[in-house]
């Protein structure tokens, strides 16, 4: 019964596969507190490390440098400076906005880390590193980082 079976094609076959996933991501107690302050009080909060005194925004439970639990919450004004940015001009599935749009890293006054977010109410060609920014909150807030609609230039 053994053959090389030349009558069956060796034509390469590509198998089309679609992987469906539906992951649920926990923000944990720390992330939940951060998001609820934004949702309920339009406040941006950070956590201060008892070891090195750095303020982390967004907050995390442990200081990455000292590996100690951070428990001291610090309220920030929300104002800050742009440390880096880019303008997205291409489209992919699952993008949160229609291109073109700009996002950047914002260092909040009183914080030692950067928060990534969208930039709005700004001419995409006139964004400058170091420019002053402030958050614009959505009317309807649901407990998400996107409850901050974007950061806009502030005077």
């Amino acid at each position: 019964m053994s053959h090389h079976l030349p009558e069956i094609s060796d034509e390469p076959v590509i198998a089309e596969v679609i992987a469906h996933t539906n992951f649920l991501v926990s923000t944990g107690a720390t992330g939940t507190r951060f998001l609820k302050e934004i949702r309920d009080n339009k406040k941006i909060m950070g956590l201060k490390c008892p070891g090195c005194s750095k303020v982390h925004v967004p907050p995390r439970l442990h200081c990455p440098t000292c590996f100690v639990k951070m428990t001291e919450w610090v309220e920030l004004s929300g104002k800050g400076s742009l440390t880096s940015y880019t303008v997205v001009r291409y489209q992919e599935p699952y993008m949160p906005k229609e291109p073109p749009y700009a996002y950047g890293v914002i260092q909040m006054d009183g914080a030692d880390t950067g928060l990534a977010h969208f930039l709005g109410e700004v001419d995409l060609d006139k964004i400058k590193i170091g420019m002053r920014l402030e958050p614009v909150f959505k009317e309807e807030r649901e407990g998400s980082i996107l409850d901050i609609d974007y950061f806009k230039p502030s005077s």
Binding site: S26, G28, A29, T30, L61, F67
Partner: peptide, 25 residues
Amino acid sequence: RPDVTTAELCAEAVEAALADAQMTM
């Protein structure tokens, strides 16, 4: 464990192992 992120869950195990070894990071 909705009260922790995956990373925070990991930190619990690392804290326990370091304490068991009487070591720090």
